[in-house]
Design a protein around this nucleic acid. Structure first.
Length: 257
DNA sequence: ATGGTCGTCTCACGA
């Protein structure tokens, strides 16, 4: 089984690229973030024609998450329990033996912003949710745009980014609290090198200059980690015409149909 | 040089 996650920064704009990418990379499931679509505008038919069922939780202009799957999707839940938030950032579902949680973690804007306070509060609530989901689902993958670079290997210029949003200690500690529940950053199961990025700012030709961050992650439970054969980032679509600022991340599991 | 570029409900804001 192969799964992927991609912050598309508007599915309306990026739908042709998603369809092109799926033709080349026919993953079993694809989690999308920043769809920026109301549910009534979600391109259900185009994706069905491409062989994918879809579940989605969207809103106008901002946020929005979706999961596409070649096999049926069940047990769908949106949002964080006990947190009545209009921002659509969380979508959990079951696909065969896999429990998948798709996240668009708040960006936080800057460490002195009230959005940063919201981000850390949101991550604390997420911890409790993931703890409950892990207790119920041994084969759990938590994927998405975490808006946190786990460590300095994941940052093109750690000195410039030190203490900044996406790299600050409180954010990294909040991510570590999630990992301490029994989750593993799947890319690090197979790769210890730095310089592997999933996001490049649109400005200053950051992609061409290889100035990126790795903030899009596939976290896996212990049982899933033993089955994980591969975890990588496909930077190709970032080089396409009119790209998303994020690249898709992919993980493959054996003995998981 | 405190900018730069995207996408959106576009002359403002979020990323």
């Amino acid at each position: 089984m192969q799964i992927a996650s991609w912050n598309v920064n508007s599915l309306k704009v990026r739908l042709p690229q998603v369809l092109d990418w799926l033709r080349e990379n026919p993953v079993d499931a694809l989690a999308l973030q920043e769809t920026k679509l109301k549910d009534e505008n979600f391109p259900v038919e185009a994706l069905r024609d491409a062989g994918y069922a879809a579940v989605f939780a969207g809103q106008s202009a901002y946020n929005g998450v979706a999961v596409l799957s070649r096999s049926p999707i069940t047990a769908v839940r949106t949002g964080l329990p006990g947190f009545d938030d209009p921002q659509q950032r969380v979508l959990a579902c079951t696909i065969g033996p896999l429990r998948l949680i798709n996240l668009y973690v708040p960006n936080g804007q800057s460490v002195d912003s009230d959005k940063y306070v919201y981000k850390l509060d949101w991550l604390a609530r997420l911890r409790d949710y993931l703890q409950a989901e892990l207790a119920e689902h041994p084969h759990l993958a938590v994927v998405g745009d975490f808006n946190i670079a786990p460590d300095d290997r994941d940052v093109h210029d750690p000195a410039a980014w030190a203490g900044q949003v996406l790299c600050s200690e409180p954010e990294r500690k909040a991510l570590q609290v999630l990992l301490d529940l029994g989750l593993t950053d799947s890319l690090r199961l197979h790769e210890s090198a730095g310089g592997i990025y999933s996001w490049w700012d649109y400005r200053m030709m950051a992609f061409r200059r290889k100035r990126g961050l790795r903030i899009d992650l596939v976290l896996v439970s212990a049982a899933l980690a033993t089955l994980c054969e591969e975890s990588r980032i496909d930077a190709t679509p970032r080089g396409w015409e009119r790209p998303s600022d994020h690249a898709p991340v992919i993980a493959r599991f054996r003995n998981l149909s």
